[in-house]
Design a protein around this nucleic acid. Structure first.
Lengths: 225, 225
DNA sequence: CGCCGACTGTCACAGGGGTGTCACAGGGGC
DNA sequence: GCCCCTGTGACACCCCTGTGACAGTCGGCG
């Protein structure tokens, strides 16, 4: 299920789109300002951002540029009225698509799916981490050619980690991404799952080289050397 | 050597792509309008069509639909980023892929080869999975040379799976592909059909080697080793 | 250098959820 | 009308999963 971040200061539009997008089967987080948006982006790591251009404080273009400095995730810009200057600046600031308000939720949904599809195709269906190969189409993970029989949760955990190689993800973020619920109480849930995953994936589970522990933070999948 | 038809009204882009694609080892015919394109298509019967969306007269979507009324050859749509108003319409009008201009010739070439590969696999009249042979022309499935008397639904299920060998398909996707309706409630329908299919196809139905279960996802037809 | 606290690894177990299986009734084709 | 196919619900089974407790490890600080 796609996880979106919607940044829009107008309360009516924001809640309206949030509702509509949720109905279309997305998970949606929202922010009402550029600052909040950037913070939420860093915390929650959405798959895609829908970003209003006219924002108080940091405007949409600036938010877009700042995100693009470090990350490649798809961004759809939202703006009132068609304005050629906006289109050019928008695409130059690194947005993947550009939608003019007022927008039909169905149209926005179609654009979102299109951009996500495009991204999926570009990020190849399989990736290799040393001897471990992840095949997203077959939903299998092999090690030295042998099928690793991961359980659904283990597989999801590995997939989410592999979508952000080299980036440390907190337990909180992993809970949201893999388990899709916000926990506050700490349990050893993530750790236990990581342990089971390591047992299958790592050469020496007690000295992991793929799924590294980032003390005080969480875990990180190391890209191949 | 693949034979392509390139339909694009902008002279610079058309000649540029023609040159590039020829260098990549394709034979290329070109047309500058939808009408010309359709005529050339009927005359020359290319293996694949690269089709611009914005054309004077008959536009790309319409060309696509007209071709699809009678033929199944692969079509790649070409569109400028600013007017990708409807990716959805493009894919729904029957195109196999969708490329945004400006496009690197190497990228276009890669897409062309990918689509052609996909097409070859699908259209090949028969394919073998171990001792099981699927004959799409005769619509029969044999095992060790013996006809397997599949029921219509079983056959369709197997055909859909075999169109995407090695790819895991969810129950949801299979319902759409085989039964052509969107269910939300879960029933054991897919499972039951898979079970019946396994009973005929597998050597040991309780330990399937062809139609594998992907826990938490769905099913997958394993390609021959 | 050693202690201490916080964080992480590990394990066993009980509960739950997903899957395989089956029988049966309705329906459609010959 | 007969028969085969198909969809459904029930049920059992097994694997997975979440939890809590405890041991182990790391880093900081005196």
């Amino acid at each position: 299920m796609p996880f979106l971040l919607l940044i829009e200061d107008d309360d009516a539009i924001r809640t309206g789109l949030e509702l509509a997008l949720t109905r279309q089967g997305h998970r949606v987080a929202t922010a009402a300002s550029g600052e909040d948006g950037l913070r939420l982006f860093k915390e929650q790591r959405p798959d895609l951002i829908v970003l209003d251009v006219m924002l108080p404080g940091i405007d949409g273009f600036e938010v877009c540029r700042r995100i693009r400095r470090t990350d490649q995730l798809p961004i759809i810009l939202l703006t009132a009225r068609s304005d050629d200057i906006d289109v050019v600046v928008g695409l130059e600031s690194g947005a993947d698509d550009y939608v003019v308000k007022p927008v039909q939720p169905r149209v926005l949904d179609a654009r979102i799916r299109a951009v996500l599809r495009r991204g999926e195709r570009e990020s190849s269906d399989s990736s290799a981490y040393g001897s471990v190969v992840i095949d997203r189409a077959a939903m299998t993970v092999t090690k030295d050619g042998q099928d690793l029989q991961l359980t659904p949760t283990e597989l999801r955990l590995l997939l989410e980690l592999s979508r952000r190689p080299g980036q440390a993800l907190s337990r909180q973020q992993l809970l949201r991404l893999v388990w899709e619920h916000d926990y506050l109480g700490d349990s050893r849930l993530v750790d236990a799952c990581v342990q089971r995953l390591r047992a299958k994936v790592e050469d020496v589970p007690s000295a992991p080289t793929l799924i590294r522990t980032v003390r005080g933070v969480g875990y990180r999948l190391d890209p191949p050397a």
